[in-house]
Write a protein that binds this DNA or RNA. Structure first.
Length: 476
RNA sequence: CGGGGAAUGGCGCAGCCUGGCAGCGCGCAUGGUUUGGGACCAUGAGGUCCCGGGUUCAAAUCCCGGUUCCCCGACCA
């Protein structure tokens, strides 16, 4: 009864099968848009909440800005409008009448934020402004895939304004680190921090940083980006302040975003042929209890114990469900495995007699992941198991990533390396170089990783001397 | 937006070529037997055959137009 296509057979189909079987989403009647079902949305909420806490911890506050942006706002920053115009949704009519000025459905909020910041900032005392938005944006995509690329997507966008470039640049780096830590610590998802090539920069930025994660099919996913906007938007929107030296100056602004694509990425990193494997810290359900019985007498004894355990786990703060559905245990095992629940607690008549339970961990399939343990101290044991599972998922993902990044110091080595993995290769930061990678190898420069030894290298495309290497891969 | 595939009950599909009662498996409902890795039997419910037009005595089937999904390319988080 193979409901899920094996990953090795067709990774893309596997991804869609998993989302369906885990009850994450529905297709919507609108092209490129999706309905997120409770299980999928709860997962998103958990990721959102853990990220939101990190934003608050670094001094940011949430706010809300309009969905509609006057077309003229977008046009104020030349490269910004040039970058986004092909994918804008534009409202031309309202209340039955044609609008004097079309309204753009926000593809991102830099411009309308800029308008407000210009009013809010008068003095260096007003800085920095550290604001984050949780919202959805619309980009008219040609080709979509649930969570990874949808026309409307939910995300957060941070927008900050600073008095100096030193300070804004520190913010840009800090938020990239926040994204990376969220991946590693909340989602057990490793990624590579680095600088995007000029060609891959955000429209209107002077520098863009990214974290790149390796999916289960070895393709790269840009999981989060952080932009140094320099003074481009400050100039376009007149965000100026009077500094200590009584000189009027333009602000330095940043923006940084992470979308529900990250969730799709996490699924593609951890999932296996049985379905989802969710990291405990963000899983909608961390544990599920499956009662096992034959007779009514057994049922009453088992359910009594199962309910007691359920209450104990819940009281300990564990997100747990007692699965009392009228299904066979085997069905429930498979069902919760598809949904990626990290820990399963099985309790049957023998366990009631022995004051024990069977614990099964999702990260280790089959009997190998099963163990019998006393009921006493179960909440603590399960919490410890969560840590184990988190670390095990992280280690597996890290090992996979490491094993599939190869050094390539010549064009031929690059060509070979990107067939089934990533290449770390000396590359000149030049749009023409990026273009050639795309044309000839269907790969892109993901980023120039920060964590590398500077050296004397020769660009594999141009033969020119370079001091750093880039990660090159096929990407989502 | 270019090339290729597809849309039939909740899910997966057959039927289409060669027009003639809309089917199968899973799921769902009810009853019974079951239950430590996707149980079984019986009975039953559930359909604008993606949408619109055309051809025909008759269209899931043929023709035209459109929508959506999947895969491969160009663009993006």
């Amino acid at each position: 009864m193979a409901k899920i296509t094996p990953r090795s057979e067709d990774f893309s189909q596997w991804y869609l099968d998993v989302l369906r079987e885990a009850d994450m989403f529905d297709y919507a009647p609108v092209r490129g848009c999706i309905v997120v079902k409770p299980y999928g949305w709860t997962l998103y909420e958990n990721m959102r909440d853990s990220l939101d806490k990190r934003f608050k911890d670094t001094g940011h506050s949430n706010a809300a800005f309009p969905l509609f942006i006057p077309m003229s706002f977008l046009k104020r920053e030349a490269s910004h409008v040039e970058g986004f115009s092909p994918e804008l949704a534009v409202v031309t009519h309202g209340g039955g009448e044609e609008l004097e000025e079309p309204l753009v459905v926000r593809p991102t909020s830099e411009t309308i934020i800029g308008h407000s910041y210009a009013q809010w900032v008068k003095s260096y005392r007003d800085l920095p402004i550290l604001i984050n938005l949780w919202n959805s944006v619309v980009r008219w995509e040609k080709r979509t895939k649930p969570f990874l690329r949808t026309m409307e997507f939910y995300w957060q966008e941070g927008h900050t304004a600073h008095a100096t470039h030193e300070e804004s640049w520190a913010e840009v780096q800090q938020m990239l680190n926040v994204y990376h830590a969220h991946g590693v610590e909340d989602c057990a998802m490793p990624s590579v921090k680095g600088r995007k090539s000029r060609n891959e920069r955000f429209a209107g930025a002077i520098n863009t940083l990214s974290i790149e994660a390796m999916m289960g099919d070895r393709r790269a996913l840009q999981a989060g980006t952080s932009h140094d906007l320099g003074q481009n938007f400050a100039r376009a929107f007149d965000i100026k302040f009077l500094d200590r030296d009584n000189v009027e100056k333009h602000c330095w602004t940043t923006s940084w975003g992470l979308s529900w694509r990250f969730m799709g990425g996490m699924i593609m990193v951890h999932g296996d042929d049985q379905g989802l494997r969710l990291p405990p810290r963000i899983a909608p359900l961390q544990a599920v209890i499956v009662p096992i019985y034959k007779t009514d007498d057994e049922k009453s004894r088992v359910m009594e114990a199962a309910d007691r355990i359920f209450r104990a786990l819940k009281a300990a703060g564990i997100r747990v469900r007692l699965d009392d559905r009228d299904e066979t245990p085997g069905f429930k095992f498979n069902d919760w495995e598809m949904r990626g629940v990290p820990v399963r607690v099985e309790i049957g008549p023998k366990d009631v007699a022995n004051n024990s339970v069977a614990l099964a961990r999702r990260d280790i399939p089959g009997k190998a992941g099963k163990s019998f343990t006393p009921q006493d101290g179960l909440p603590e044991k399960i919490k410890a198991l969560f840590e184990d599972i988190h670390n095990s998922l992280l280690r597996q993902a890290e090992a996979f990533q490491k094993a599939n990044i190869r050094e390539a110091n010549t064009w031929d080595e690059l060509k070979a390396a990107v067939q089934d993995g990533w290449a770390l290769t000396p590359l000149l930061d030049d749009p023409a170089v990026d273009a050639r990678l795309k044309e000839e190898l269907q790969v892109t420069n993901r980023n120039f990783p920060f964590d590398q030894e500077p050296g004397e290298w020769t660009c594999v495309v141009t033969g020119k001397p370079v001091t750093e290497r880039a990660l090159v891969a096929r990407a989502y």
